[in-house]
Nucleic acid binder design. Structure first.
Lengths: 139, 139
DNA sequence: ATTCAATATTGTAATCATTACATTTTATCA
DNA sequence: TGATAAAATGTAATGATTACAATATTGAAT
């Protein structure tokens, strides 16, 4: 992406170093990070950063549909910069969340039933490819 | 369902009035209730009920795959007795969560890629049919 | 460049759902 | 009916998130 400044301008959001750093972090890390992950990483290069700012920034970016929160693990919110519809895979073993590029043919059906759909969320839980390999190796 | 006693027996779980009440509640209310909803309702007819018991019971029923927790709203867990794969619709207006009987053709694809899938979760967010009608009426 | 008002950041305190834990009670079985 | 393992209960602790007041910064007008 890169042009975080124009992205914020386009949404009439003020340009602040904190917001730019958070956007960049989400754009360059595909881990669907938690608030703590973002906070702890950015704190190193931006020591004055407050965790509240991370919460506030993520909230306003979400309000403007620049990012989306994920409620997958059930005990902590995670964030995703991608806004096109896609799905996720949560590995029970390593805890990582991967993107899955599949499209959902059910959306149309549901819309045809009259539902007004604004968001689509889908995820699978199981053992990812890497962890399966690792388990094979350790046998 | 009805035969909650045998369901618990089948899983070698002790039969307690609390567990039976919770099972019955989930079986007869399709609201995907929160812990508080369950607790507050059952408290009326079972005044000694403790919220911890509700948590514990839901936890053990989940462990035995009799129920499943839903992480849809993002700020509170909800529970669902149905164990066959289905999806949900969260209404932004009334907050209700409805069941959607659709099947996901992507499961096979993901499995063919080698993923070991243990759970499938999908939900849509938008405005439900009832709330759309209501909004029409109030115009 | 300077000023100013609106907005963002910060730190602390409060909240809410959930979990930990010790004690009492109950279910099950010999 | 008693013994024992497990469950229920109540309170305290935890952890993520939110509320709020004070300070700092952004962006626009001058």
């Amino acid at each position: 992406m890169k042009d975080y400044i124009n992205l914020l301008k386009k949404h009439n959001l003020k340009i602040t170093p904190q917001r730019l750093a958070i956007l960049k972090y989400l754009d360059t890390h595909y881990t669907h990070p938690t608030v703590d992950e973002i906070y702890n990483t950015l704190k190193k290069t931006n020591p004055s950063l407050s965790k509240t700012t991370v919460y506030n920034s993520l909230e306003i970016l979400n309000t403007h549909h620049i990012i989306q929160p994920l409620h997958i693990t059930g005990h902590e919110r995670r964030y995703d910069l991608r806004k096109d519809i896609h799905h996720h895979f949560l590995c029970r073993s390593c805890g990582n969340i991967q993107d899955l590029d599949i499209n959902c043919p059910n959306i149309k059906k549901i819309q045809e039933q009259g539902y007004n759909i604004e968001e689509v969320h889908g995820y699978f839980k199981g053992i990812c490819l890497d962890c399966q390999k690792r388990e094979e190796t350790h046998k």
